[in-house]
């Protein structure tokens, strides 16, 4: 039988579970969120560990901001065994402290860094490729469908950049929306905000046409290079990009 430990689905509860397992010297076959559907060979164990939020601060102090960021980014990925990788990475972090990420010969470090970089790169890409529309109620509204769960990272970017605007960003795959009220942003389920997503404002089409015109004009015909464009801007992102939708 495979021993599968179950956690609440968020970062803090995963860390709490991992630390508990390490303390008790248990070796999980895997760690999964509560949404996991067990197979016939799985023996699921729900530890119901009391939630300890101080763990974040503790990791930051003991191992540094960078290690915490990498751990969090791994958690945001869609990698199948991310929890198990985090388990081994954390175990090694206790051993090597803030130097752990230099041990690239360890599989959990090299794999963990690969996954974290993928998440960081994708969130950077989304910061550029995201397209807002202005709605009738003057709220800016954007949709995206990233492979990884980068809504939090993307939202903190726009919190600084579009500080004096109301905006909403929807992750259509995960059906969650981040909403910003000119102070903080909150991530909620799509259903709670459905009524706020109104029609586009009356100038929206005009601005979109202006942007599409700029996009078409700025490319140099003599240097046309579809392959290069696709490398930098994969097709999976085109669906929500104003200037690319027509080319799909």
């Amino acid at each position: 039988m495979n021993n599968i430990y179950i956690y609440d689905g968020d970062f803090i509860s995963l860390l709490n579970t991992i630390i508990y397992l390490i303390k008790k010297n248990r070796k999980p076959d895997n760690i999964k969120s509560f949404e996991y559907t067990p197979t016939l060979l799985d023996n699921t164990i729900n530890l119901s560990i009391p939630r300890n939020e101080k763990i974040i601060e503790k990791i930051r102090r003991q191992f540094g901001k960078y290690v915490l960021r990498i751990l969090y980014c791994i958690f945001l990925s869609e990698e199948e065994n991310k929890e198990l990788i985090l388990f081994y990475l954390f175990k090694n972090t206790l051993k090597y402290q803030n130097q752990v990420l230099y041990y690239r010969n360890l599989r959990c470090v090299s794999e963990g860094m690969r996954i974290a970089n993928y998440v960081i790169h994708e969130s950077h890409k989304m910061k550029g490729f995201l397209r807002f529309k202005e709605l009738e109620n003057h709220i800016l509204y954007a949709e995206m469908e990233p492979t990884n769960n980068v809504l939090f990272l993307v939202s903190s970017h726009f919190q600084k950049r579009l500080k004096n605007e109301y905006w909403m960003i929807k992750d259509t795959k995960r059906r969650i929306i981040s909403i910003y009220d000119k102070k903080n942003f909150y991530i909620v389920a799509e259903e709670e905000l459905k009524s706020r997503i109104t029609k586009e404002s009356k100038d929206e089409k005009k601005i979109e046409e202006l942007w599409k015109l700029f996009y078409k004009t700025i490319g140099i015909t003599e240097r046309k290079n579809d392959r290069c464009r696709m490398n930098f801007m994969p097709k999976k992102y085109w669906k929500f990009m104003t200037e690319m939708r027509d080319e799909l």
């Binding site: 996009y215 490319g219 140099i220 015909t221 801007m233 990009m241």
Partner: peptide, 19 residues
């Protein structure tokens, strides 16, 4: 006001010539 600068720079799109 509106806007800030990301030190790393951000590409928002890529033209038909790949730039």
């Amino acid at each position: 006001g509106i806007g800030n600068v990301a030190t790393s720079g951000i590409c928002h799109s890529f033209a038909s010539d790949g730039r």
